[in-house]
């Protein structure tokens, strides 16, 4: 981490300032107890929040979450913020008798997991037109990301978990699982957990698939990591992963660029959310 911060964000003393930054490094946790970030979204009594998905719309951050009151099926809710830290009240976006979790939003369409993962659904943000886009009895589907006509998701069956992708139009699931190619001796988790994939534009205008995910190397607490791919096939891991680690469990990440700030939302134990941010001198990745 330290070497990366230097490499990616050096200042004049480091040999340069305004060096290109992709938002992979240098995140600092914003602690709810200290600065009251996410306060309105922070866990109300009897309610668990999770699976944050953030996006920027008209200069404001929209934060979609799974809102799970005790004894009631989870639903998708959203709160907005002008600064990415302090959010307004949660408003329900969509609900389903079986429960909806793990939201991902494109335009005015959301994707989510129905129930315990028997299906991935889509619907409009006004809560209408909710329908299954992928179903597989006997498997647990999760973490949908809709990018360029493809639906990335995780599939867990028979104790094995893999990252898969399918055609959104046809529902055709590509047979080979997607992998993250880890470099030797790198941080190497056994599985990609709760990935979020977006289409990003590099500093030279090239398109790249950008993935943030959680991993539990050695079965311990989850850390947060990045990977990227040009074609959305084999992902390369970021060589300095984990991008955020060492703290008790942090999982289900969502990453946005908000002006010159890269914001990394994640879930924490106890149905709470967390935020880490990187203020970049020269942010070069747009997504």
């Amino acid at each position: 981490m330290a070497s990366l911060g230097c490499a990616a964000g050096g200042d004049a003393g480091d040999g340069g300032s305004n060096l290109p930054e992709r938002g992979f490094a240098g995140y600092t946790r914003v602690l709810a107890a200290d600065e009251a970030p996410l306060q309105p979204v922070e866990k109300p009594d009897g309610v668990a929040l999770g699976d944050p998905f953030a996006r920027v719309v008209d200069g404001r951050v929209e934060l979609y979450v799974s809102l799970c009151p005790d004894g009631v099926p989870c639903r998708i809710a959203v709160a907005t913020s002008a600064d990415g830290r302090a959010f307004g009240p949660l408003e329900t976006v969509a609900e389903d008798p079986a429960g909806l979790t793990e939201p991902y939003v494109v335009g005015d369409v959301f994707y989510a997991v129905r129930g315990e993962g028997a299906a991935l659904v889509s619907g409009r943000l006004d809560g209408t037109d909710v329908r299954a886009v992928l179903e597989e009895p006997g498997a647990r589907l999760g973490s949908p990301s809709a990018v360029d006509g493809r639906l990335f998701f995780t599939r867990e069956a028979d104790g094995a978990q893999a990252l898969r992708h399918a055609e959104l139009d046809t529902g055709h699931v590509f047979p080979d699982p997607l992998v993250v190619e880890h470099r030797p001796a790198d941080w190497t988790p056994p599985a990609i957990l709760q990935p979020e994939i977006r289409r990003a534009t590099t500093g030279a205008g090239r398109s790249v698939y950008r993935m943030v995910y959680a991993g539990r190397p050695g079965g311990g607490d989850a850390d947060l990591a990045f990977a990227a791919a040009f074609e959305g096939g084999a992902f390369s891991d970021w060589p300095f992963d984990p991008a955020l680690g060492g703290d008790p469990d942090e999982f289900a990440p969502s990453n946005i660029r908000f002006g010159a700030r890269y914001l990394l939302y994640f879930a924490r134990p106890g149905g709470r959310l967390g935020l880490a941010e990187r203020v970049a001198d020269n942010p070069t990745e747009s997504f």
Binding site: L4, G203, A204, F230
Partner: peptide, 16 residues
Amino acid sequence: RTYLKDDPADPIGDFT
């Protein structure tokens, strides 16, 4: 001059 990286996860990435 535009620099393109072979590795999509290169820490610096593409830049001009």
